[in-house]
Amino acid sequence: MHDAAFPALKGRRVIVTGGARGLGAAFVRSLALSGAQVAFGDVLHDDGNALAAALQSEGHAVHFVPLDLADPISITRFVDEAVKQLGGLDALINNAAITNSGGKFAGELAVDTWDAVMNVNVRGTWLMSTAALPHLRDSGRGSIVNIASDTAMWGAPKLLAYVASKGAVIAMTRSLAREFGTHGITVNAIAPGLTEVEATAYVPAERHEYYLKGRALTRAQVPDDVTGPVLFLLTDAARFVTGQLLPVNGGFVMN
């Protein structure tokens, strides 16, 4: 267990959504250790403020800004404030998502649940990306990494709204890569497997066991497994990589 750090990101100005805990918090910590300037948003204000305070006490340039991806106005305000805090923007990690469609068959899903998942995971990713576009364009080396899910690659059952939303994020990554590429901005997606974080605590033990047995690397997946690939895609070493999907799941799904 260790925090991935990329000295090549020193001084980079990065936004992370859903950064208060779980994978998002791992991204924020690793970016801070890399010397990046970070602004992160979340609906979990107490957790966000606590993480920012802890990293600031260690001398890192980290800022928490409230964010509700379900609210388009909140997204605009977040980007404006984050860019103000950072003095510009070089990269965006679209990490925030909700998974509250788990445990139900397709015919049991409520329309309101479907809409809530799509509004945050899909519409939120779209609006965040377009709000960040002019600032990333001004950077001259802008990068976006969308956090998808390998559930959209193997078709996880009883999780339809989430799976569909992450499939949309994968498709949107390719389209945005073509549109934003004209501005020199790279757009890629990472598809993590089932990772041991707070957000997956509800997942039944048999699903965790299913992943363990199905991976080429037969151990549990932790946040540190994902931070390295994500941060690499923000470096200059990946400037000619765009529109790609990278599964990071220990070989459970192979692309």
Rank of each mutant, 00 (worst) to 15 (best):
residue 255 N to V: 15
residue 137 R to K: 14
residue 70 A to N: 13
residue 178 R to C: 08
residue 8 A to I: 05
residue 80 D to V: 12
residue 79 V to R: 02
residue 87 G to I: 11
residue 208 H to V: 13
residue 162 Y to V: 10
residue 199 A to R: 07
residue 39 A to Y: 06
residue 65 V to K: 04
residue 76 T to D: 11
residue 145 V to I: 10
residue 124 G to P: 15
residue 191 A to M: 09
residue 119 N to D: 15
residue 131 A to V: 06
residue 58 E to I: 06
residue 24 G to M: 02
residue 172 M to E: 08
residue 114 W to Y: 15
residue 73 I to R: 11
residue 16 V to G: 03
residue 42 D to Y: 03
residue 165 S to F: 08
residue 160 L to F: 10
residue 55 L to F: 10
residue 100 N to Q: 11
residue 226 V to L: 15
residue 239 R to D: 08
residue 189 A to F: 05
residue 69 L to E: 10
residue 214 G to M: 12
residue 195 T to L: 06
residue 218 T to N: 10
residue 228 G to D: 11
residue 218 T to M: 15
residue 127 L to P: 14
residue 173 T to E: 06
residue 106 A to D: 14
residue 182 T to D: 11
residue 42 D to V: 00
residue 138 D to C: 01
residue 215 R to Q: 13
residue 31 L to H: 03
residue 86 L to N: 02
residue 70 A to E: 09
residue 216 A to D: 09
residue 75 I to K: 05
residue 44 L to P: 02
residue 127 L to N: 12
residue 130 T to A: 11
residue 246 L to A: 07
residue 236 D to A: 09
residue 165 S to T: 04
residue 151 T to G: 01
residue 68 D to L: 10
residue 92 L to F: 15
residue 160 L to C: 14
residue 41 G to N: 10
residue 186 T to R: 13
residue 219 R to G: 13
residue 119 N to L: 04
residue 18 G to K: 08
residue 194 L to D: 02
residue 138 D to K: 14
residue 88 G to L: 07
residue 174 R to T: 13
residue 45 H to T: 14
residue 200 T to P: 12
residue 110 A to C: 12
